[in-house]
Computed example of a mutant assay.
Amino acid sequence: MAATTTSSMALMKMMRFTDSSPSSTAAVSARVLPFRNPGRLHFQLGSTFRRTITTHRDSISSSNSATAFCCSSAVTASVTAESSFNVIDGKKVSKEIKEEICAEIAEMKDAIGVVPGLAVILVGERKDSATYVRNKKKACEAVGIKSYEVCLPENSTEEEVLKHISSFNDDPSVHGILVQLPLPSHMNEQNILNAVCIEKDVDGFHPLNIGRLAMRGREPLFVPCTPKGCIELLHRYDIGIKGKRAVVIGRSNIVGMPAALLLQREDATVSIVHSRTKDPEEITKQADIIIAAVGQPNMVRGSWIKPGAVIIDVGINPVEDTTNPRGYRLVGDVCYEEASKVASAITPVPGGVGPMTIAMLLSNTLISAKRIHNLK
């Protein structure tokens, strides 16, 4: 990825990016949109694709580019006045969702004496992965989901991982199985993810779930969480999707591709911008809704954004910051300072999409338990 600078627009168009799959988020002080409460979450198998809350895995894309810092200069000459903007508060929405999940789990326990169970398999000692697993465990405990955890050393064999997956597949107290990515390089990620029983694939990564998502008239058992969390934020803030022009930046299997499929199911006209797209700025500028999920800090500038567009920033990228005690700060794929002068609503990083990811994971686990026990 070429460094993001304040040089000419021509240089901006030459920027290349990878189709990685980030995720993110923590609040920014600005006016927050009121969000509606759609009531108790529910899932009905075979019904039309609903606003069911689902899940996804956290992934961090890092970049050491010193020039990744967002510029605070004027957006472009075409934007003559700073527009008011609103923060889409993912922390607030995720808190409400967790409260709804907690209430349903309490009812489920009272009715049949069962609580949902989520198993997480962690291989290796990556600090970011270990942090994610700890956060998921804490979130499970907070809503009443029983957590199962397997931590294996980096040099574990693929067969050992598959053995644990098989055990959880057969365990009736486990309703969801999550294999924390990335896996060590000597393991075949596809083989391992495919081994998870589709009825417990709360990440939504099984090819049959993705295939059903892509087909009209078919319903996946689960949808990848981060993309579903993005759509849920739009729903909760009453941001219309039907008939809108939407651009998804990034085409990963985890975020970009399923996000585009979900937008299409919502009757948006969808374009995907990726590493081989010509004139990505011009395509993005046509969008009413932008979902940025490419893992490149501050790639989307203010000049890429149509005034009044809504932006969902999935990226979470550490960039060097000598003024920060940690030596770095987190930024999204969208240059927040510039975008906030143009967009009508935007998710902050951190504090936007990131909190939704775990909330969706919890919801998918509840959905799985209800389905397995024939509960509405």
Results as ranks from 00 to 15, higher is better:
1 M>R: 13
1 M>C: 07
7 S>A: 14
12 M>Q: 07
20 S>M: 01
25 T>G: 10
28 V>S: 04
31 R>P: 06
34 P>C: 09
36 R>A: 12
38 P>H: 08
46 G>D: 10
61 S>V: 15
72 S>V: 09
73 S>K: 15
76 T>E: 15
90 G>M: 05
101 I>F: 03
105 I>K: 04
109 K>N: 15
110 D>I: 12
124 G>K: 07
124 G>V: 06
127 K>D: 07
131 T>Y: 04
140 C>T: 05
144 G>L: 08
148 Y>V: 02
152 L>H: 01
158 E>V: 12
160 E>S: 15
162 L>P: 04
167 S>R: 13
168 F>H: 01
174 V>W: 01
176 G>D: 04
186 H>A: 07
188 N>V: 08
188 N>K: 11
193 L>A: 02
196 V>G: 02
197 C>G: 10
201 D>M: 11
204 G>D: 02
215 M>L: 14
215 M>A: 14
215 M>D: 04
221 L>E: 06
225 C>H: 06
226 T>Y: 00
226 T>F: 00
237 Y>A: 07
238 D>S: 15
245 R>I: 07
248 V>R: 04
248 V>C: 04
251 R>E: 03
255 V>Q: 03
258 P>T: 06
259 A>V: 03
267 D>R: 13
273 V>S: 02
273 V>T: 09
282 E>D: 13
289 I>V: 11
297 P>I: 08
297 P>N: 11
300 V>A: 08
301 R>T: 11
302 G>S: 14
311 I>E: 03
311 I>M: 06
313 D>C: 12
315 G>L: 07
320 E>I: 12
321 D>M: 11
324 N>Y: 11
329 R>V: 12
329 R>M: 11
340 S>V: 13
343 A>E: 03
351 G>R: 00
355 P>A: 05
361 L>Q: 01
